[in-house]
Design a protein around this nucleic acid. Sequence first.
DNA 1: TAGATTGTTAATCGATTAACAATC
DNA 2: TAGATTGTTAATCGATTAACAATC
Lengths: 201, 201
Amino acid sequence: MNKSQVLIKRLCAYLHYLKQLPPEITAVSATTIASELGYGDVQVRKDLAAVAGGGGRPKTGYPVGMLTSQLVKYLGFDRKTAAVIVGAGRLGMALYEYGGFSEYGIEIVAAFDKNPEKCDPSKGVFPEEELIGFCESRNVKIGIITVPAEQAQSVCDRLTGCGVRSIWNFSAAYLRHNGSVTVFNENMAASLAALLINKSE
Amino acid sequence: MNKSQVLIKRLCAYLHYLKQLPPEITAVSATTIASELGYGDVQVRKDLAAVAGGGGRPKTGYPVGMLTSQLVKYLGFDRKTAAVIVGAGRLGMALYEYGGFSEYGIEIVAAFDKNPEKCDPSKGVFPEEELIGFCESRNVKIGIITVPAEQAQSVCDRLTGCGVRSIWNFSAAYLRHNGSVTVFNENMAASLAALLINKSE
DNA sequence: TAGATTGTTAATCGATTAACAATC
DNA sequence: TAGATTGTTAATCGATTAACAATC
């Protein structure tokens, strides 16, 4: 049951739309979702059929609560996975304090920094020496790298082999790694630029 | 000449890979790029054919410098577009000081905040009252919203109609807007979660 | 020359759209 | 009942992969 990236993106958009609806709205039609989000109505209906499998009713649409929980389940956001942030700079701390991750099944349990001044165990920021031990003992599966590019490879190496399976790399560094981890490069600038393509006339 | 999102993503990955190569490497084959980045070699070749249009040589590959500049041009990263950040919090300032945007044709020219204490014109952070005038006079085309969700709609409304064409929304708010702007919602949590799907066995 | 690699053409695959019957 | 909407089946479209000749 492989899910294509575009499908997942649409499903996340539906979920986001459903969550911001006022609670008095109990049902929503594929037509409405489509026009609000700029998709075709047939496509929304087809996507929802894969997820909800026939929960819609002609003339009314889909019950919001049911659809929401089915989307969450289908996307696997109900299963919790532990993550750590390495690099307690501006971006790292912004992500750490963002809080929105838990809705998507991701629990950021600690941040690490090699600068002792940035560490504060009472706020969940620990010295980088404790990284490996922490990941092993707490069964951490995701490492988020927000250190400068020069340090990223060394952080990646340390995260590899202590049980971490996925690395989300915010640094500009190109990370060499073996098959035991999957590296996802997040390049904010590239993301924005990519969105803007196809826009200019 | 419409470019699909997946294609753009791959092209950005190629570009990123080429840029990190040591300068002594002057030619690279599609086979190498493919195995380094985990794509099929035929696909890389086909993608590059669309961009470079026959610049490769059997047995050697493609000249790195030429390929890089052709990718930059194809993706339109050589054209500059002005952007502003609204919300000088942790995330906003992290993006502002990140610096990597200019490589992708995006020039972040100012940040704004409604809290006077966060403003410092010498650092390019201005009071929010100046936002509209600034965007109009400086021909700003992109607005990046990093304010809390409650304030996001009001910021969006102000950015609409002062020449801004694209809004990159980092807040959790669902923004209502008219056709004069395109809103891209960046949900970090959802992005990460989406990457992880298809990973769990 | 032999082998690695390019680039193109045809075949396959998957995703989107169109058409329409079923239903509340 | 009439109309809006669902959900399914078939048709189209686009993107990926396979096969192979050309070339350095």
